[in-house]
Every structure is written in C-alpha cells, then in structure tokens.
Design a binder for these strands. Structure first.
Lengths: 217, 217
DNA sequence: GTCTATAACATGATAGAC
DNA sequence: GTCTATCATGTTATAGAC
C-alpha cells in the first residue's frame, strides 16, 4: 500500500506493466459492456479485444462482477457529473457544458444508460453503485437549487428536491432517446430549456427577500 | 383469421385452450423479463413459472425473441400512454393520472425501464419496438403542446417538440429513480411540477394572440 | 504472468416418440 | 400438445504446466 503510486527507483518495471495491463482490460471491458450490457457481454469478448486469453484476464480481476465495478469506477474518473469545475462557472452553465461534452463521447452515455437500467434486475452487481450515485446527485443538485433560491434566482414555488430529481431524470431520459435517435434529439437544448424555466436570469436577483446566504460572489 | 375470435359452435375447445395457454406464457414471461431482463431471463424460467417444459413452451413461440415481442405487445394493451381517455380529460390531467396509476403496477414500469435500455445493446430484438414507440409518443405530445399553444395556454418561448421529448425523458428517468428508491421519489409530483411550468392555467387563456385553431373543445 | 485443458453448468433450439 | 433426449454452443471459473 505504501509504494503503489510513488514508483520508487529501487523497484520498477513489473508493477507499472501490470497496472497498464489492468487499464487495458478495463478499457476493453468498458466498450464491451457499453455495447452489449453486463449480462450480454462475456469475458471472452473482453479478452479478445485486449488480445489475451480469458483465463489470463481472470488473473487481473478475480470475477466478472469485480471487472464491472472497476469499469464503473473508471466511468467516474472519465466523466464529470455536471458540477462546476471552478467557482466562476455557474451551475446552469456547468450542466449545459457537460451535456454538450457528452455528445462527443457516445460510448460513455451508452455504458451509463445500459448498465443503469440493467442494474435494476435481480442480483446485479452494479445496483449499489447506481443507487448511491443517484442519492449523491440528487443531494448535490438539491443544494445547488437551494443556493439559487437563496439568491432569489429560483422561480417561486419550485421545490429544490423534486427539481433535483427531475433534472437527473430529464438528463437520463434524454440520453436514452438520443441513443436511439441521435439526429432527432437535442440533449443540451432540452436541458437548457428546463433550467431556464427553473432559474431566473441574474439581473432579476435581489427582488425576492434573500440577504445573507454566504459570499454571493 | 376468419374464425379466431368468433368461437363458432361447430368447432370449439382446442382453439380456446391454446389461446389461454399462450396468454399464460406471455404473463409468465412478462414477470421474468421484468425481473431479469431479456438476456438475463431464460426460457426455462418462464416454463417453470407457467408449469410446463421448456420445449413445450417453444411449441407456442418459435423463439425467445418472438416471445419478447409478444410480451411487448401485451404491455401496450395493459398500460396506457398518458393520453386522455375521453375529451373531457385534459392533457395534463391525463399524464398525472397515468403516472399515479403506474405507481400501483411496479412490474409494468420495471419491464419497460429494463427492456428499453437493454434494447440499445447489439442485436436486441426489442429495439424496433422502442424506437417506434418513442417517435409515436413524441409526435403525440408535440401535437398536444401545439394545441395548448393554439389556446394560448403554453408558456411563451416553449418549443413543443423539445418539450415533448423532455416530457417523455422526464417520465422515463423518474421511473428509473423510483424503482431504485421508491420512498424517495414522487413520480406524479415531478411530472405535475414540470407540466405546471409549461402549461398556463385555464383562466389566463386568450391573452396571447390565438383565435382560430379548430374546434377548441 | 500467461497459457492449455477442463470442469461444471446453462443456454436456445431440434427430432421424434407418445 | 406434451414430453424426453439431445445437440451445439457459450458461460464463468479453476488447476496446473511452463
């Protein structure tokens, strides 16, 4: 545990190669599970893609479900969650920008959409991941909407928690439709429309009573 | 084709029994595919549930994919699409009522959600069904929003086509979250919130310029 | 670390007796 | 119409040589 990332001069080589191999496998599995789902994609498919035998693959990951979890973890590091990268970036802009970026990486959307729904089925190893992800996302967006309300920029009557769940839902659902008919669906446009209904323009702020809610900018 | 439903006195018995058997099979398959997906559910599972051998089952449906299509057809007849049942029912009310009804039949939602995303994967026999269903749904809702615009009841600036896709998306997405956390998600509430943002109350009609767009009611 | 061999099992589908 | 028997294949996972 102590000498995993440091790459000390004394012992180099095998660790780095093994780590690279693991990454290759996860990348291959990423594509296979995206195209065929977890149940539909086999270890043999992954092994073929990475150019090794199926048994060698199991030397790196003890089971198929462990490989899936590694793929899901990778997904998190590859793609953001529509949260602002820096404080200058507004919440709404961050969502739109993330949506536009997603259109350039259809494989990421495919993996997410296919595995998310599949995780609802019996004994699916990805279920915990998606349940927790949803809870975290809803909390995050709910806080963002509450903050906007504090600035007087949330449309009156909007409930932050339902709005958060709805934003996540709209995003997921529009991705599904986009995968089935990319030329008919404007993902970023739909999200923008929705957020513009919820969030009032900046220059109208201050009208609703909201004075102190932390540093405003 | 001529003597299928009429049950003529001259030839009774075998037809009716065979038809009943087919229905039993479809019902069992409905539950199996909902709980395990198409790839995860086996013909053996279905056969066990209906109490017959797997080969006998294939006497009624020539292949697993044919059985899936029969299940999807059944889904259409069991569940509505959120369209008004009679002219007295408004579009918005019809959607809310359908959503509330859906909460009472989780198996229907499960089947739909699981198979829809699974249909994105390679060579899935349900893909055509879902692609067409989405096109039909978007057209239907788009027309409904356009009609509301004609009555001056659609919020200015709302695009009927994107709103239609967004409504479908929101509905799908909220069902996924509901399946993973039923106690945290208010499906009908989220849909109502969204539609109330889009559709203006009845008594405000006529303010926006819209005079003649067919019989108003 | 990588492989071959193989276990142990599940799958969808077919043939043919009754 | 229903069954047993079986085919042909694909699955995850293990054992053990090199």
């Amino acid at each position: 545990m102590g000498t995993k990332d440091g790459a000390p001069a004394g012992k180099r080589g095998p660790y780095a190669k093994s780590k690279q191999r693991r990454e290759d496998i996860v990348n291959a599995a990423y594509g296979v599970f995206a195209a065929r789902g977890y149940r539909g994609g086999s270890l043999q498919d992954v092994a073929d893609k990475v150019g090794m035998s199926q048994t060698s693959l199991l030397h790196y990951f003890p089971s198929k479900s462990e490989l899936l979890l590694a793929v899901l973890e990778r997904r998190d590091s590859v793609s953001g969650d529509g949260r602002p990268r820096d404080p200058e970036d507004s919440f709404v802009d961050a969502v739109i920008r993330q949506a536009r970026f997603n259109e350039t990486v259809p494989g990421v959307i495919e993996l997410y959409t296919v595995l998310c729904a599949e995780s609802i089925t019996d004994n699916h190893p990805g279920r915990g991941y998606f349940t927790e992800r949803y809870e975290r996302l809803r909390r995050s967006y709910s806080r963002a909407f509450t903050a906007l309300a504090g600035e007087g920029r949330l449309r009156p009557g909007v409930d932050p928690e339902r709005a958060a769940a709805s934003l996540v839902a709209l995003w997921d659902g529009i991705q599904t439709q986009w995968l089935l008919a990319p030329e008919s669906i404007d993902m970023a446009g739909c999200l923008r429309d929705y957020l513009e209904l919820l969030v009032l323009p900046d220059h109208l702020a201050g009208a609703a009573g909201a004075v102190s809610s932390g540093p405003s900018r």
